Amino acid sequence: MNITEVPFGTYQGRPVTKYVLTNDHGVQAGILDFAGLLQSFKVPTKDGGKADMILTSENLDEFTNNGFCTNRLIGRVAGRIAEGQFEINGKKYQVEQNEGKNTLHGGTNGFYSYIWNVDSTNETANEVSITLSLTLTEEMDTFPGQIHVTATYTLDNKNNLTLKFSATSDADTLFNPTNHTYWNMANSNVKTVDQLKLYVNSKNHLAVDDGKIPTGEKITNEGTPFDFSTPTQLGDALKEMTSTKENGFDDIWEVEPNLNEPVATLEDPESGRKMSLYSDRNALIMYTMNSDDPAVYNHGEVHPHLGIAMEAQTLSDAIHHPEFGDITLHPNEEKTYTIKWHVEY
């Protein structure tokens, strides 16, 4: 087990550092202090090399010059908030509207816009970890209260990478963070996620309006392209989505929170690489990179369905749908959430 530090360019004139966590099997996770970004997640290959399980770049500019939140930490609130408005204890709040009339991923100055502090790194016989922290004020991101957030990535010898979020605030606010990593563990000559097989422990997905805001209705997955209750080839599901406005998925699945059984799995039958996702919250938002915008990249590659984001969080716009879950954070309260990825190769 070890941790190494590597310079990784500059952001707004400040140096960015990559922290490489390596376990005894040669599995590596590269974490940037910029945006708490998961820059790489490499596993050994049968020929003695290493393969990345996620979309990546060695150029920081390719992460910062696109609007797709690639592999970054997201918050205070992941997903969308209708009209950027909400109410806590009878008090109304208006936050920045950065996607039309709605708020997306905490606004333009959310978690993903900052270099985080590195509070500590830790090495033991069976795991290595890094703890990052960020403090945001209302003047910085328009959300009420000063929030202090920590994010700890831990890589262990069982090939688990765990991300633990924790937050406190000095006033009523919202907290629903996630990680926005894009996955594609196929061989480098495979250009899309089509051959990957996806399983999701979900019976329903959310109905949404034209702005992707949940209506409150839950739609049964069975009999639709949203049904991944058995491992399903993504290409088959995506073919059924070609007639949609998005030409793919940008949708919200309701899942059973579980840190012992996978919420979802994604595997590449050809290489044998597989990722199992665990989460203690009730939603998985999946986005299949439907754009051909040049900002969507992987080492310079540009085309739709290059990767799939799998964002574990509480159901979107929960502040307007109490039955979706409680994303409020109050003074003298600490909230903690966990996401875990297990890799096989």
Score class of each variant (00 low, 15 high):
N184G: 02
N184W: 01
M185P: 11
M185A: 07
M185Q: 09
N189E: 07
V190D: 03
K191C: 00
K191H: 01
K191E: 01
K191F: 00
T192N: 03
V193E: 02
V193M: 02
V193G: 03
D194S: 01
D194P: 02
D194T: 00
D194K: 00
K197M: 00
Y199A: 01
Y199M: 01
V200D: 08
V200R: 03
N201S: 07
N204M: 13
N204F: 14
H205T: 13
H205R: 06
A207H: 15
V208H: 11
V208T: 15
D210T: 13
D210V: 10
D210G: 15
G211P: 05
K212D: 15
K212M: 15
I213M: 15
T215F: 15
T215R: 14
G216V: 06
G216T: 13
N221R: 07
E222R: 09
G223S: 11
G223L: 10
T224E: 05
P225F: 06
F226K: 12
F226W: 13
F226I: 03
D227M: 13
F228L: 02
S229K: 08
T232P: 07
T232L: 02
T232N: 04
L234W: 01
G235H: 00
D236N: 01
L238R: 02
L238I: 06
K239G: 03
K239D: 09
E240I: 01
E240N: 05
M241W: 05
M241F: 06
T242F: 03
T242K: 07
S243L: 13
T244C: 10
T244P: 14
T244E: 12
K245M: 13
K245L: 12
E246V: 09
E246L: 11
N247W: 03
N247A: 00
G248T: 04
G248V: 06
D251H: 14
D251S: 14
I252R: 06
I252D: 12
I252Y: 09
E254V: 15
V255A: 08
V255I: 13
V255S: 08
E256M: 13
E256S: 14
P257S: 09
P257H: 09
E261Y: 12
P262T: 06
V263L: 11
V263H: 13
V263S: 09
T265P: 14
L266F: 03
L266T: 04
E267A: 03
E267W: 00
D268Q: 04
P269G: 05
P269A: 04
P269T: 02
S271L: 12
K274N: 07
K274P: 12
K274M: 08
K274L: 04
Y278I: 06
S279M: 10
S279G: 08
S279I: 07
L284H: 04
I285N: 01
I285R: 00
T288K: 03
M289P: 07
M289C: 09
N290A: 03
N290F: 05
S291R: 01
D293Y: 08
D293Q: 09
A295L: 06
V296S: 08
V296E: 09
Y297R: 10
N298S: 06
H299I: 00
H299Q: 07
E301R: 05
H303N: 06
P304M: 00
P304K: 00
